[in-house]
Design a protein around this nucleic acid. Structure first.
Length: 565
RNA sequence: UGACCCAUGGUGUAAUGGUAACACAACUGAUUUUGGUUCAGUCAUUUAUGGUUCGAAUCCAUAUGGGUCAACCA
């Protein structure tokens, strides 16, 4: 019978959660005594930046060894020197750390090149591998197809001695790229194409980011990954569904090499709607400048999400809630947004920023102004308060006024009253327009005894608006991000996926005015601009320009209401 | 005209032969100095057909639908 594991669900208490299929396998392995502890690994290829799909894998592999005894290695699968770079190694390490995980050992498949070479010799000695001089075209022609068996290469019958001599000479650099390969001798008629004498080694006279020019032959994925797992005594080697057919070869090689029997398990990768998640496509967006870089806040990369203001906690929470299974799926980006809102609601400092300012003069407010106080976070009683200056000239949001309001509109309108957040109730007395009929200013009166926290006016108003005082407001730039694509699954549409990019995925607001406390905004702080959304300082901020990224909007019930018409 | 994998509300996951559930989304309402938050509630699910069984989402068969496999990529 499956058992429930107790997962601490915050300080409040424990929550019961059912097991996913991998946890179930592991519990059974632990219970049966097959293993006393487990070893997993996260095996990225250093040829791109990590994205949300990797986050699922990272949370899974590292999460498993948090729940169960054991540890997780970080292993770079660097067997193709042509596409791999140190830049990517560094970014991957930074992203994993930022997500909140620690690896036990930092390893590289290239650490094992000597061992792998010995394994290849062993296979040759057992008559289970041969050197093939066929070109890739010839090899493809002999490979058959999923529905037709392949045929043996003429080189398949070489002697062990001949194979060994040739393989050593391949290693010694005697042959040009592409001229020969080492192949496993399995079965050219196998129903699994991967078992039709798969290539184990190919010749590439290329500089490797770690081994330099030591090697000119490099192992293929199938002859490196499983063997690396085995060398590290990985107990549960977890990968995505497209590797299911590789498992047969994975097991065959372990058996023939007589090495530690790591086991491969596959789960369905997490796709997310309104974005793309393949390294190739993300790279295209970067190189063709559809976005500004790997860390563009619209990118589903870890670095992009970080710059956008997503917290590691919210991403981990998303992975946990989305769960894992074996069926193809497309998760709703709305769930990620829910997770980040939930976290940010607890930690974000409340501030007031007017994006599209409309001037208000409070005609009966005399004197130079005063300093009011407002809570930093209503969700956090210990969060304290900040000072906000108030005066007779302020700005409100242009959409917070409507000359001819509908019945359900409870913001400012001629003759109507609203509260200014943490300040007074005001009433709109007069609308001032320019020659073209555009509203340029509102003249209002305020209710002196309605001061926030001290309201003896007895007046109840439905709407509360954010505002900034004219003289003390600071100018800031706001970058509002929206989904990168306008369709749920851009790869499933006709034509090129880039035709479905959302042209409005970035909107820059340069007219915004912020309360003065934001002049001291910090990179690590998260902000909620009241009634607007969650924001964080962008790295492009300079002494002359303060820039905020919108992480996510607030849930907007009014927008829904207005859409209903 | 092959092999392998998969199929549960709109979405993502549970239920491991014994009352189909949780979260998100959506929708009502209450509270609210953020049309936010919070709270209460509503809606909605086993691809199909057979079989085994007292009893099937679960086991078996067939069908259907989706996915993967013919890089010297991983």
């Amino acid at each position: 019978m499956p058992e429930k594991i107790n997962q601490p669900a915050g300080p409040a208490g424990k929550e019961e959660r059912s097991l996913n299929f991998l946890e179930e396998i592991i519990e059974n392995d632990l219970k049966s005594g097959k293993y006393k502890s487990i070893v997993t690994r996260f095996p990225p290829e250093p040829n791109g930046y990590l994205h949300l799909g990797h986050a699922t894998t990272i949370c899974l592999n590292f999460g498993l060894t948090k729940t169960y005894p054991g540890y997780t290695n970080l292993r770079f699968d660097d067997t193709n020197p042509v596409t791999e770079e140190t830049e990517y190694v560094e970014s991957i390490k930074e992203d994993v750390k930022w997500l909140g995980f620690e690896w036990k050992n930092e390893r590289y498949a290239s650490d094992y090149f000597d061992q792998l070479f010995e394994y290849a010799i062993k296979l040759i000695d057992k008559g289970l591998a041969y050197v093939d001089d066929s070109t890739s075209e010839e090899m493809a022609a002999l490979k058959g197809s999923p529905t037709e068996p392949g045929r043996d290469s003429v080189f398949r019958s070489r002697t062990i001695g001949e194979n060994k001599d040739l393989f050593v000479r391949m290693k010694n650099g005697e042959f040009p790229d592409g001229s020969r390969t080492l192949r496993a001798k399995i079965d050219m008629a196998h129903t699994n194409m991967l078992m039709r004498d798969p290539i184990l080694y190919r010749i590439k006279h290329a500089h490797h980011h770690r081994t330099g020019d030591k090697w000119c032959i490099y192992p293929m994925y199938d002859f490196a990954h499983g063997q690396s797992d085995s060398i590290e005594e990985i107990t549960h080697s977890i990968c995505t569904l497209e590797f299911v057919p590789h498992r047969e070869l994975y097991d065959w090689l372990i058996e023939k090499l007589e090495i530690y029997p790591s086991r491969q398990y596959e789960f369905a990768r997490k796709n997310i709607n309104y974005t793309v998640m393949s390294k190739r496509k993300l790279l295209q967006l970067v190189t063709e400048k559809h976005v500004q870089g790997w860390d563009d806040p619209r990118m589903p990369t870890i670095t992009g999400l970080r710059r956008r203001g997503y917290t590691a906690e919210s991403i981990r929470d998303f992975c946990e809630r989305a769960g894992i299974a074996k069926r193809e799926n497309i998760a709703d980006i709305g769930l990620l947004e829910f997770c980040v809102r939930e976290h940010l609601n607890k930690i974000a400092l409340r501030r007031m920023v007017v994006f599209d300012p409309l001037k208000i003069v409070i005609t009966n407010y005399t004197g130079g102004g005063e300093v009011l106080h407002s809570e930093n976070n209503p969700e956090d009683p210990q969060g304290g308060v900040r000072e906000i200056p108030f005066s007779n000239e302020i700005y409100i949001e242009r959409d917070d006024f409507m000359e001819n309001p509908s019945k359900k509109y409870f913001r400012l309108a001629p003759g109507q009253m609203v509260r200014l957040k943490s300040a007074y109730i005001i009433k709109c007395e007069e609308v001032i327009k320019d020659a073209d009929g555009n509203i340029t200013q509102l003249n209002c009166t305020y209710i002196p005894d309605s001061k926030s926290g001290n309201d003896t006016s007895g007046i109840n108003v439905k709407g509360t608006l954010h505002w900034v005082s004219l003289k003390t407001a600071i100018s800031v730039e706001i970058r509002e991000y929206d989904r990168l694509f306008k369709v749920e699954d851009p790869t499933d549409e006709e034509g090129d996926f880039k035709e479905y990019l959302n042209p409005d995925s970035l909107k820059i607001v340069s007219t915004a005015l912020a309360e003065p406390s934001l002049a001291k905004a910090k990179f690590d702080d998260r902000y909620q601009f009241i009634r607007k959304g969650y924001f964080c300082l962008d790295k492009d901020t300079s002494a002359s320009r303060v820039i905020f990224n919108r992480t996510v909007t607030l849930k907007d019930g009014w927008a829904k209401e207005t859409k209903k018409g």
